[in-house]
Design a protein around this nucleic acid. Structure first.
Lengths: 216, 216
DNA sequence: TTGACAACTTAACACCGTTAAGGCGACTCT
DNA sequence: AGAGTCGCCTTAACGGTGTTAAGTTGTCAA
């Protein structure tokens, strides 16, 4: 008989396990019972640490963000363009690291205020570069929302890098689109090479920020 | 005894009712049983018309798009900027018309190819204005993804225009953010006046498109 | 030794999406 | 006119879900 007693859970460990499980089973398969099983515990035990499932998802999103920030130290010498590029590339990479990452992320709220550190840093850099605070906020959120929208759509087609969801057969699509030649041709390109397309869109946004706010 | 026989359902009628119900109960409350009750039918009856719940959600998204297109005739004399503005304002308005509209929309796929008409029209206008097809596609999608990301976040805070979700107390937020003065000040602005902020971000994107692709 | 408290388990509830089987009115074919 | 087919729906049920209530167990303090 193993008299070893598991040391008690805490929110971080639960969120960590849930994130690992998320990649195996996806958001739909991420049930409290499955998470509990993985932690060698029964489902109601999770309610000791979280008031409901959404609170657990919130903690998962927060942990995703923590790891993203930890994974990339910011260079104070960055230009504002560099910073926007790095921050949003980093965000996309972080989200792509988990199946349904964008959905989990955008459906949740952070549990603390740790994220404000990065935000503050970015706002400081942009205002120092000549933006007003309102402009800086608008610039950061616009790029952020673009990235979130992009990855959400991307993961709708490609749950994890390499996999591809059904119903996206390009040949059949082309046949149906016979009456819409431009759309057909554009679509064939749109659903591939997400990396390049993301970069291109991000460049559009960043270029627009510089142009409209007269900062370069 | 009422011997009146309901006339049979069809996909459109089901989607229509489901959309109406969505505004009352939200996506979480939108169960097949509730939809069926509204249609004076039992839940399994819906499986005659849809292979599963996702197919119904797809039809709802398609119906949302149909109404959006129907609600705003496009002016062939639009400049490409006008078109991008109108299309994305229209999309946002359409999504805001339903509780959790952005989530339903971005989690679903269109059931037909009706949407290709509008797409084709937009691509034609942009290429005629001097964009290459690839540029036109990138421009349209980037703006589209921004709008989708924006409304998703917006509806996370404000499910329906006028309402406001709990946990967004601005005073408490300011107190917690005492150590992050820029974030505190920016945040106070970010969570209000979504209309203006949407316009501002959209202008950034459109400005970026013009600048980067050298079309004006 | 007692009592409090943190961290769990067991049992149950209401509800969910979905499937299988069957009923029933309307239409067609002979 | 009767039999058979088919579209559209119902009844019943299944396994699974998030969640709650109540009870258990080990640990540590008074």
């Amino acid at each position: 008989m193993s008299t070893e007693r598991r040391e008690p859970l805490d929110r971080r460990r639960v969120a960590d396990t849930a994130l690992r499980l998320l990649n195996e089973v996806g958001l739909d398969g991420l049930t409290l019972r499955a998470i509990a099983r993985e932690l060698d515990v029964k489902a109601p035990a999770l309610y000791w640490h979280f008031k409901d499932k959404q609170a657990l998802l919130d903690e998962m999103a927060t942990e995703m963000y923590r790891r993203m920030v930890a994974g990339s130290a910011l260079d104070p010498a960055d230009t504002w363009q560099d910073r926007l590029l790095k921050a949003n590339r980093g965000l996309r990479t972080a989200l792509l690291g988990y199946r349904d990452g964008a959905k989990v992320f955008s459906g949740s709220r952070f549990t603390g205020i740790e994220h404000a550190g990065q935000m503050e840093d970015n706002l400081r850099l942009l205002t120092a570069a000549g933006f007003t605070l309102a402009q800086a906020a608008r610039a950061l959120t616009t790029a952020y929302l673009y990235t979130l929208g992009f990855v959400t759509e991307e993961q709708g087609v490609q749950p994890l890098p390499g996999e591809r969801r059904e119903g996206y057969d390009m040949d059949e699509r082309a046949r149906l689109m016979a009456d819409f030649p431009l759309s057909a041709q554009a679509g064939a390109e749109i659903f591939e090479d997400y990396d390049r397309h993301f970069e291109e869109g991000l460049a559009l946004v960043i270029g627009g920020i510089g142009a409209r706010y007269g900062v370069s």
